[in-house]
Amino acid sequence: MKILVTVKEVAEVDDEFDISGLDIAESSLEYDLNEWDDYAVEEAVQTSESHDDVEVVTVTVGPERAEETIRMALAKGADRAIRVWDDTLEDAQFLDVETKAELITAVAEEEAPDLVLSGVQAGDDANGATGVAVAEELGFEWAAVVNHLELDADAEIASVRRELEGGIEELTDVELPAVLTIQTGINEPRYASLRGIRQAQRKPLEVNSLEDLGLDAGVVDSPVERTSMYEPESESDATVWEGSPEETAGELAAFLRDKGVVDG
């Protein structure tokens, strides 16, 4: 059995940041493994540990810098990695859902996995759509926002729980091959061990260009164009208590006593 996990390196923005043109200034960004993907990697690795003959392959769309993130997934137990990038992708204004889905689909068609695990969303652009779009492109089944997975590899069924709003879970059987988008909290992502980190350096990491995937530059074309980026005006009309911690705590205590919600 083969599991393909989509892994994204996401940009995290400092509390104080600058906007440069239509994006956040590079100096205000830090990069990390997408939180949702961390859970997807863990779910794949746990599956490989509890079933025989499971290969875990990660796929990332991103520049060379993203290899640090990819190595992290390898250190946690993925077997090998594929990174997709080239100048055409580098030069695009941004990659829309369709473009990302086409890139990942091209890799998935090569790899022919039984299961694709993807984070519910990326912490930076928060589209929440790529996994399901990939499923449709591949002709796979899918389930979005999965917080529990039991795999019956023989029956080729994934029994999942989908986390709906308001504390309701939907219990659903999904035929394989399938794409599942993984919600945070489904497991406890491990920390990479030192041994894992050393081993990760020797695991295969293949870089594919558009040409390698049989795609042309048209894949980045999008009718959707970014036209502005700005910091939303604060709607805050909060009264901010100022002073030392003792003073502000005193203000809050006085407020709570006034309100009559606490005694003492």
């Binding site: 369709e98 589209n127 759509a129 926002v145 959707v224």
Partner: peptide
């Protein structure tokens, strides 16, 4: 809707109909 169920079909519909999708 950009709900859990909305995101369980909107991307598939957009892909199938070959239409641009913007979420949320």
């Amino acid at each position: 809707p950009n709900s859990v169920n909305g995101l369980d079909y909107a991307p598939a519909v957009a892909e199938q109909l070959d239409l641009p999708l913007v979420t949320d």
